[in-house]
Amino acid sequence: MSAPGERPEAETGRNSDTPVADAVRGNWVDTWAPEPVRPYLRLSRADRPIGTWLLLLPCWWGLALAAAGDRWRSEDVWIALGCALGAFLMRGAGCTWNDITDRDFDAAVRRTRSRPIPSGQVSVRQALIWMFAQMALAGLILFTFDRLAILLGVASLALVAIYPFAKRFTWWPQVFLGLAFNWGAILAYAAHSGRVGPGAVLLYASGIAWTLFYDTIYAHQDKEDDVLIGVKSTARLFGERTGKWLGLFLILAVSLMTVAILIELLPHAAPMKLAVALIAPWSMGWHLLWQLQRLDIDDPDTCLRLFRSNRDTGLLAALFLAIAAAL
């Protein structure tokens, strides 16, 4: 503990190579990355790839749904790859911005005080430079898409900027995360089709419901610390009623994706294409139900494990939509 008037260790620049507490053990950043760049990769959550998956998968949903409405095209390979690279970079930039704005909160929470800024691995100025570098690279990728997709990508920056502050003024910060993290469903759909159809909007809404599901589980890890520091979340709001709320989000996610597929494919798609596409929301729903049955909101390790399993939830939906597009 620092004496009165002393700067805490988190501000002195010590602990230059401290792994983050909730990172996957043996991850490539802590094991293989050169030591000077490790703090920046940790700031981008490269040692915790689940966030990149959760940002990327709605992009692939939107692309596959648009392709299912007509056909796969050669340029879709770049759209899918560009979304993957962009998701990695923009998730990194978003996490960097989140850590800059939350540095005082993070220093007060056991799970997050080992993050690069509160632990002294990176200064705020260095973090800002790193954030803008990632955004610039993501911008180069975005500008290879068509005009509508570019405009949508630029518009998403407002959601990214607002999200870190949401937990200060609303019990529903997970809604703001959902708005930001699922924007790619609309962007990738537009990159393929050159328009934003109603199916894309419904798919976006389905993703928001999915985010409310998984991020409420995630937030239960920190609920005790959040009470002490005054941070709001759906985990605190729902408390012991969490299971019932998650069941509602499950139903919304499955229903909205189902309607999105029906709107896009029912008028003209072959029965086999439609049937395969409809497996996507129901496979996602099955996986969410599996999580719900195993949830223990008072066990942080279980919450983290189930949160991470949502990569598979989203991949199931992406897989069946992609197969349907190929039929």
Rank of each mutant, 00 (worst) to 15 (best):
A3P: 08
F213G: 01
W171N: 07
A136R: 01
W171I: 07
I150V: 06
T258G: 10
M272I: 01
R195A: 06
F238V: 00
P39Y: 02
L81K: 04
L292H: 09
F145C: 00
A93V: 15
V29F: 03
T52W: 12
D106E: 13
A136K: 07
R195E: 10
M131H: 12
G230A: 03
S283Y: 05
F320H: 09
G285D: 10
H220C: 08
I217N: 01
W60E: 01
M272S: 06
L140T: 08
A185S: 14
W290Q: 07
A166P: 14
K273W: 01
C83P: 02
D146R: 03
I217E: 04
L256A: 05
D104G: 05
L137F: 01
V254K: 14
G243H: 15
F145L: 01
L137A: 12
L237N: 14
L202N: 07
P58C: 00
R147G: 03
R103H: 15
R311G: 04
A318N: 10
G197I: 06
V254G: 02
G5P: 11
L265R: 08
G197P: 10
F143W: 01
W32D: 10
L57P: 00
L54D: 00
A188T: 14
D312K: 13
L89A: 09
L202P: 06
R236P: 02
V175S: 12
D215F: 13
G178L: 02
L152N: 10
S309M: 12
G5L: 02
R7L: 15
L140Y: 00
W72T: 01
R71E: 08
G153F: 10
G197H: 08
S119V: 14
P173S: 01
V24C: 01
K232Y: 13
W183G: 02
A127H: 00
L278C: 05
D104E: 13
G247V: 00
A80K: 10
K232I: 11
W78S: 03
W78D: 13
P118Q: 02
A136H: 06
S2N: 13
G178T: 08
V231R: 12
R305G: 00
L56C: 07
E9Q: 00
R25T: 05
V276D: 03
A21W: 11
A161E: 04
L179A: 11
I297S: 15
L177I: 11
L57T: 03
A155W: 15
D99Y: 13
D299E: 13
C303Y: 04
T313G: 11
V227L: 08
I141Q: 05
P19V: 04
R147S: 05
V227M: 12
R195F: 09
S309D: 13
R111K: 02
A80C: 15
Y40G: 00
W282C: 01
A235T: 05
L159Y: 03
V231W: 05
S309K: 05
P300C: 13
T101F: 15
P271R: 09
W286A: 07
L289A: 09
M272F: 07
A108M: 06
I251G: 08
L256I: 06
G139N: 00
L327P: 12
Y189Q: 05
A324S: 00
I279P: 11
A138K: 02
L56V: 09
A317E: 06
R111E: 02
R241P: 08
I79Q: 11
K273E: 14
V77C: 08
